[in-house]
Amino acid sequence: MSLDAGSETRTVDFAADDVPQWRSILSWPAAPSIIFLVVATLGVGMVTDGFLTIANLRSILEQAVLISIVALAVNQVILSGEIDVSTGSLLAVCAFVFGNTANVVGGAWLPLLAALAAGGTVGLLNGFLSTYGRVPSIITTLGMLFILRGAVLLGGGAQVLNMAPESRIFGQGMLAGVPVTILIAASLFLVMEIVSRHTIWARNAIAIGGNESAARTLGLPIRKTRLIAFVLSGLCCGLAAAVFLGQIGQLQATAATGFELKVIAAVVLGGTSIRGGKGSNVSPVVGAVLVGVILNAMTLNRVPGTYELLILGSLILGAVSFEGVRQKLLTRGH
């Protein structure tokens, strides 16, 4: 957030001179989504009974946690100008690794390590193919989405794993009065904020996503930066798998199908530019909560589950076209 605050402020100052005020509001990436989130929450709250209760809001947050853990990482991938659509299947693979390790050795920490290792390895492969292998990331990760799902179906087809309570500590229970899952997401957010503010890698990622050829001319390590973003995405899938299994307690081969769409929806709804180079860590979190609010409102209003994809698709299209309109408005007259 802080990173582009620098570049954004310049745009705002510049805009303040010769364009109306509303344009400068438009130019802060996360602002529209936050406004939208507040309006949506209040709007849904007014028309839906039982929405604005502590228990329901908590369950929305807990659902949003899973999305935001992965979205925080995919956000970095998109910022650097690439995309990762393999997260749904990768989450399932990591969950399988977690579940099977937990079944053999018990506990939760060793399975977490195994899931992180699996996620990191696939992320590394994704990143390597997309950078050094010159395969566009949409092709790599789309191929991987199907390869990994195929692997899960082959490896675990009919298997239904039930988790022991001791292995579910990342998805259940409270710590100091706060649900563990929310603590995990909050710490990840803090870590990402520190990384964004204090590492050269994060600054490079934004520079590369913003203008690749300029970044190349400057001699920034384009491939390495993007590779790290993909590895991060894999690692976060590993972490999310631990939370996921902790929350639902059992595992099937079709788990998390379509999850990648929720993640992408969260990132673009939050206001990160799909073209890369513009966005903040607030975006994926706000976006994830928004997705959570909307899906929850659907359930409470008895909208059939068959509408979920329809809603997600409209959200993605709405968010990116909003971004397109905003670009048009901002560039008009320049």
């Binding site: 068959t306 698709g313 990116v320 076209s321 397109g324």
Partner: peptide, 29 residues
């Protein structure tokens, strides 16, 4: 969508990937 908003086709068609099937599911229940 792609030409009017000058968006990358992969984003637009990722959106319609969900939208079209979403409509199909919603209609057919």
């Amino acid at each position: 969508f792609i030409t009017y908003f000058r968006l990358h086709p992969l984003v637009v068609t990722l959106g319609t990937f969900a939208l079209f099937r979403g409509i199909a599911y919603a209609v057919s229940d």
